[in-house]
Design a protein around this nucleic acid. Structure first.
Lengths: 146, 146
DNA sequence: CTTTGTGCAAACGATTTGCAGGATG
DNA sequence: CATCCTGCAAATCGTTTGCACAAAG
């Protein structure tokens, strides 16, 4: 959890102007462990009074992405999610409720040692695991992939 | 490589009517090792005279996906790709030219043995590797991610 | 002959963009 | 005070849908 000042510094040091909207988007992403969509972000940001328009959320995300503070996560059809955790890690997605959570990098050791065919020079590995989370194991919810 | 008859049988056995358009879409996907987008598929199918409209390609892909003959692959922002290889496998994507190729399932052994946090029940694992392919190592092309 | 698929064009939803006014450094 | 950002609305792009006609089984 970063302090407000640390967030401001992070933005400034990357050459971004600190606006209330940008601050709000980045702070919100840092505070969440799920990986919200633009729509979820908008609802959350404007929950207590207007903070940012939809266009500005898109613009902010693009700016944050360009300087490497935020990345986009593609796990489902037609849905872009955003993540302020820039350290390498993997993802788990529940087939049943759509819940998404991070899997620590160390969980899959030795990915880098895998023997790809000669000629391919890898520089990043990402594992996506699909399955069922504990909540759904005990009390199944409506499926999100009918 | 399946024979025409095998393709026809595959469609029929899944309860799909065999139309020239559906046949063409599925046969084309089976014949390719890249994972084309709808646009690439359309260009290729209609290269020598009209075979299928855009709407029908979308419809066909949806039908093929529903019966499990084709799957969708999400590797890049805003691009859905399609794959007729339904056996489990992983993907490599070249940062430089965008080339995509399959990585055999066996390349990453022991994924299933990984210790996820208790409560998560995994049923599929997929690794996405980004890096540089041999063509780009020797003769760099225009980047697709500027 | 009944059911399903095709193709067109219109509809749609997510994202991007042009632009005038406003805030930042 | 020059530059960059916001917010609105219009534009864009990929995908889906309604419907009349055609083809499959």
């Amino acid at each position: 959890m970063l302090s407000s000042q640390a967030i401001i510094d992070a933005l400034k040091h990357r050459g971004l102007r600190v606006t209330p909207q940008r601050y709000a988007v980045y702070a919100n992403l840092l505070a969440r462990t799920d990986h919200p969509t633009v729509e979820q972000l908008l609802v959350d940001l404007n929950h207590d009074g207007p903070v940012s328009s939809q266009a500005t959320v898109y613009n902010s995300l693009q700016a944050l992405r360009e300087v490497g503070l935020v990345r986009e996560v593609l796990l489902e059809e037609g849905v872009s999610r955003y993540d302020a955790n820039t350290a390498p890690h993997h993802h788990f997605r529940c087939r049943c409720c759509g819940h998404i959570e991070d899997i620590p990098w160390g969980t899959f050791a030795n990915l880098r040692q895998a023997a790809l065919r000669p000629g391919l020079t890898p520089d990043s590995f990402e594992v996506t695991v699909q399955g069922v989370c504990d909540r759904c194991t005990s009390a199944p919810t409506e499926s999100t992939t009918p």
